[in-house]
Simulated scan of single mutants.
Amino acid sequence: MSIAVENVAYAAGKTIVVDGITLAVEQGKVLGLLGPNGSGKSSLLRLICRLRKVDSGIIRLAEQDIAAIPRANLARRVAFVEQQATTDTQLTVRDVVQLGRTPHRGLLSPWGVDDDLAVEDALARVDMAHRADQFWHTLSGGERQRVHIARALAQTPSELLLDEPTNHLDIQHQLEILSLVTRLGVTSIIALHDLNLAAMFCDSLAVLQNGKVVAAGAPQEVLTEHLIARVFGVRAHIERSAVHGRYNIQYAMG
């Protein structure tokens, strides 16, 4: 497995946030994390990239305990795109994306051709090359999100973690970004709210509730009308889409 989470627990003060979670992602596959607000999705992502320390359990990258991986090596390997990231510094779009190359460069290493190529490729992939010299703070919320995804791609990671990457994006760019992620061939875990996007783009799903995994498996196995009602509190009708062949979920009030 590329990423394996084994009975991991984490508490913030006296509040249990992640409660004995076990899940795994195969090399090159995309796992979607689903669940209502406060279910533990964001905290789990932070534990996987070691921004937070597990209270118990083990997280492995290719069979190696992340606690034993030097931080510099982990930073070269795992890229994390958070929900919201901001700065007051006057940075251009290219400046922000260039930050993705930091883990690959030593303290005295000169900027090289490989760095330029990685940055330009990342900008092109998220359709922001034409904004490369624009100041980051002048962008819309959706454009900023695309730039942060470009920063992660410039890092050339083997594992990619994304926390609500489609927030603030219009429908076209939601589809483009998730389609891009699935084509990368990079092991990815994506926290999502949109069940239809999860069904459309993810190889497998894990549904979290109150810090626990309550369902995991292929989208067609996990996304049932009963589970959606139990976890999300809404009635749903599920059918296979004639357009893309994946499940399509329609919601009903009351």
Rank of each mutant, 00 (worst) to 15 (best):
L123D: 13
L123P: 09
A124D: 15
A124K: 14
R125H: 14
R125G: 04
V126N: 06
D127R: 15
M128Q: 11
A129D: 14
A129H: 14
A129V: 08
H130F: 11
H130W: 12
R131K: 15
R131T: 13
R131H: 15
A132W: 03
D133N: 13
D133R: 05
Q134I: 06
F135Y: 15
F135H: 15
W136E: 03
T138W: 00
S140M: 08
G141F: 00
G142K: 05
G142F: 06
G142A: 10
E143Q: 12
E143N: 04
R146W: 09
R146K: 15
V147T: 08
V147L: 05
V147M: 03
H148Y: 13
H148P: 00
I149C: 07
A150P: 04
R151N: 04
R151P: 03
R151V: 01
R151E: 06
A152Y: 00
A152H: 01
L153K: 04
L153T: 01
L153W: 05
A154W: 00
Q155E: 10
Q155D: 09
T156C: 08
T156L: 10
T156F: 01
S158F: 02
S158R: 10
E159F: 07
E159A: 14
L160R: 11
L161H: 12
L161A: 14
L161T: 12
L162W: 08
L162D: 10
D163A: 02
D163K: 04
E164K: 07
E164V: 03
E164D: 13
P165H: 05
P165G: 04
T166R: 06
N167G: 03
N167A: 09
N167W: 01
H168Y: 09
H168N: 11
L169V: 03
D170P: 08
I171D: 12
I171E: 11
Q174C: 07
L175R: 09
E176R: 11
I177F: 00
L178F: 09
L178Q: 09
S179M: 09
S179H: 14
S179N: 15
L180D: 08
V181N: 12
V181Q: 11
V181C: 13
T182P: 08
T182R: 15
L184P: 10
G185S: 13
G185W: 12
V186N: 12
S188N: 11
I189N: 02
I190Q: 07
I190N: 06
L192F: 02
L192R: 01
L192I: 02
D194F: 05
D194P: 02
N196A: 09
N196Q: 10
A198F: 06
A198C: 07
M200I: 13
F201P: 09
F201Q: 09
F201E: 08
F201L: 13
F201N: 06
C202D: 09
C202I: 06
